[in-house]
């Protein structure tokens, strides 16, 4: 469970000046969308102007399963992250 000072994770997509599309640059933590955008500008575009930035909460991303022929995968689910830290568990359930 998140504590009051934890900021959620956001994925950052940047289209460089004269670029054709937004590319995934990485992620960062921010308390809300406005700060995520500002932080993204500071962290991921420190070296250039005229860029367009998209930020998306990491939890909102839905990713495809890896191609069965190419790689190894266990039975699929469509969550990007399969681990406990990204699941919300109500307090009443206790420690899991």
């Amino acid at each position: 469970m998140s504590t009051p000072d934890q900021w959620p994770l956001w994925e950052v997509f940047v289209r460089s000046k004269n670029g054709l599309s937004h590319k995934h640059s990485g992620s960062l933590h921010a308390p809300d969308a406005e700060m995520a955008l500002k932080n993204a500008r500071d962290v991921y575009t420190r070296r250039s102007e005229g860029t367009s930035i998209w930020v998306v909460p990491s939890s909102a991303i839905v990713a495809s399963a890896p191609d069965e022929k190419e790689v190894l995968f266990a039975p699929s689910d469509d969550k990007v992250y399969r681990h406990p830290t990204f699941y919300e568990i109500p307090d009443e359930v206790g420690h899991m």
Binding site: G26, H29, V43, Y81, H83, T85, F86
Partner: peptide, 22 residues
């Protein structure tokens, strides 16, 4: 400042493996 940024990129990469920055 770059070093701070590098730390941030690396924490992000580690987070994809199921841990959290905190």
């Amino acid at each position: 400042q770059d070093e701070g940024g590098h730390g941030l990129y690396l924490y992000s990469a580690a987070e994809t493996l199921g841990t959290s920055r905190d």
